[in-house]
Design a protein around this nucleic acid. Sequence first.
DNA 1: CTGTTAGCGCGTTCAA
DNA 2: TTGAACGCGCTAACAG
Lengths: 337, 337
Amino acid sequence: MATIYDIAKKANVSAMTVSRVINNSGSIKESTRKKVEEAIKELNYIPNSAARSLVSKKSNLLALLITDVTNPFFTKVARGAEDKAQQMGYQLMLCNTDESVEKESKYIDVLLAAGVDGVLFTPSGEKSKKNLRKLAKHGIPFTLIDRKVQGINCDVVLGDNHEGTRQLLQHLIDLGHEKIAIINAPLDISTAHDRYQAYVNTLKMNGLSVDERLVLKSHYKKENATNNIEYILSLSKKERPTAIFATNNFIAVETIRALREKKLEVPHDMAFVCFDDLDHHATIDPFLTVASQPAYDFGFTGVQFVIERVEGTAPQEFRKIQFQTELVVRKSSGGQL
Amino acid sequence: MATIYDIAKKANVSAMTVSRVINNSGSIKESTRKKVEEAIKELNYIPNSAARSLVSKKSNLLALLITDVTNPFFTKVARGAEDKAQQMGYQLMLCNTDESVEKESKYIDVLLAAGVDGVLFTPSGEKSKKNLRKLAKHGIPFTLIDRKVQGINCDVVLGDNHEGTRQLLQHLIDLGHEKIAIINAPLDISTAHDRYQAYVNTLKMNGLSVDERLVLKSHYKKENATNNIEYILSLSKKERPTAIFATNNFIAVETIRALREKKLEVPHDMAFVCFDDLDHHATIDPFLTVASQPAYDFGFTGVQFVIERVEGTAPQEFRKIQFQTELVVRKSSGGQL
DNA sequence: CTGTTAGCGCGTTCAA
DNA sequence: TTGAACGCGCTAACAG
C-alpha cells in the first residue's frame, strides 16, 4: 500500500535514495539510511514486485511442471525444488500436467504470461517438444527433470534408467526367474524407452529371450491394471511369467492391487519389482523391491541449474547429470525359486 | 518481448485498441479485431503480467503455505488446491514451513512482496497469529487449512478432530483396551489440542481414567520416536499401555519404526491407530487403522474460499467448513483382546 | 552522497 | 468504435 514515495516524503529524501537503501546499491550516508529504514518500518512498506519486475524484467518466479505431485517420486522432487528455490530467493509455482501435452501447453502459456524466469519440466513425452521450443523461443531457460526429449538441448537431470533396470532384472534372474513381464508406459517417454531397452538388454545378456507377449502397456499414472493381470492369467502355465517388472510406482501400486483382486499372492504366486520407492510405506512395511532414485536431489539440482541459467552463471555447454539408482531388496521379489 | 505497441503498429491501430481486443472490453469492429489478432499471432505476443498487475493490482497468484508437502496429507491438499486454482485461472505458489513460525514469517514477507492475491495457510500454531495479522493488515485474504487460530476471523477448512479421535478411541476401547497412550504434537496447534480433548472426553465417557503418564509429546514432523517407545517400555507391566494413538501420520510412521526397533509387533504386542491415511501404502498393504480425512477437498475448497474473497463474491460472514472423518479399520488395531 | 528525469508495458479516463 | 494522455511503483542513467 505504501509506496516508495511515501517513504521518501516521511524520511525527507528522494524516492531514489529510498530505492538505494532497499537494494543496498550505491553508497548512502549512515544517518539517512537510518531515517529511511525507520520510515519503512513505520509504514510497513513492502516493495511492489510487479513494478520491480516491470523494470528489471525479472520475476524471481520459477515453475515446476511435473505430472502429478501425489506421485511420491514427484512429491520429493517438489520438496527438493522448493527448498533450493527458497534458499536462492525464488518462489516456485506448482503445475500438474497429468501426462497430458494439452495441459502442458496451457500451463506454458500461463507461465509465459506470468513472466516466470525459468522452468523445471518433466515432459510428458516426445510431443512435449513443441512446448519446450516455445519456451526457448521466448528465451525462458528450462531444465528437464527425469526425462529427456530428443533434439532438445538443455540442462537435464536424470536417473540411471539402464542401470536401475539392470539391477532389478538381474536380481530376479539371479533368483531363478526366466519369464519376466514388463508393464511399461508409452515408449515416447524417455524413461519408458530406456527401461524397455535395458529390459531387453539384460534378458539377452543372460541368454534369455524376449517374449513379446510379456511386454505389457500401461501409463505412468494411476490406471486400473486389472486388464493386464487378466491377460497374464489367460496365458498358459508354460507362457505365464513368474515375475513382473513395473516401470514406475503408480503402475506398481495398481498392479499389486489387481494381483490381490485375483487372489495372487506376492511374492509367492508372482515376484514383483518396480522403479521408484514409496518411502513412508517402506518404513511401515518394507515390502516392495525397488530401484530407488534420489528424487529430492532431482528437484534440488534442477532448480540450481535453472537459476544458474537465469542468472547467467551457468557454463555455456548444457549439463547432464545422471543420478545413481539404488537397488533395495525387500519381500516382493521373493527368495530363490 | 513484443509489446502492445508493436502489435498496434503492425495492425495500424492504437495500443488502446489492442488492449481492448486482449481483454474483450469495449466494443471493437470485427475487422479491426481480426487485424489485431493476426498481429498478435504473428509476433507471438503475450501480455506482460507485471505491467498488468501494476495497473490492476491483481497478480492471479495464490500461495499455499503448508508444513511439508511430503506429508501425504498435505500432498493431497496441494493437489486439490492446484486443481482448483488452475481451473479458476490462478497460479499456486508452494511454500513449506516445517512447523516453524520463523519460516512462516519469511514467506509472508516474500509473498506480500510478490503481491499474491490470497493465501492458503496451515498455521504452525498459536504463534502464527502475528503472521496472519500481518496478512490482514495488508489486506490479503486468507483461508486457514486444517488448523484454526484463536482470535483470527477468516474462512477456515477443518476436519472433525473430535469425531475422528472419538471413532479411533472408541474402536480401541470396544476391542477391550483400557490403557491407551496418545502421542501428540504441541497443544498450541488446534488439531493437537482438539484431538487431546477428544481423547480425554472419550476415555471419560467410557468410564476410563486419564493417566498422565500415557500422554506423550512429539511433533507433527518426522521425529525419532525411540525415546517415547523406550519410555513406554520402562513402565511396569501394570502401567504399560496396550494401545497407542498417534495424532498424525508422521508420528505414526516414526512410532511404528521405533516399535519395530524394539521388536514389538503391531498389533500383537501393541495395538495402533492414527489420524490421516497414507494412501498408496493402504493399497499395497492395508495395515494402519486410521481416521481418514478428505485432504484433497481441504485444498480444493480452501482455494475456492480465498478466490471468492479475492474476487469479492464471498458472503460477508466468514465460513467454517468441517469435513467428516472416516474410520478405516485395518490390521494395526488388532482384534478383540 | 543525493536528486531529477525518463520509461518499463499496460489500462483507465476522457475525448473525438 | 477508436485514440491520446496519464499514471501504476520502481530503477537506470545522468546530473550535481
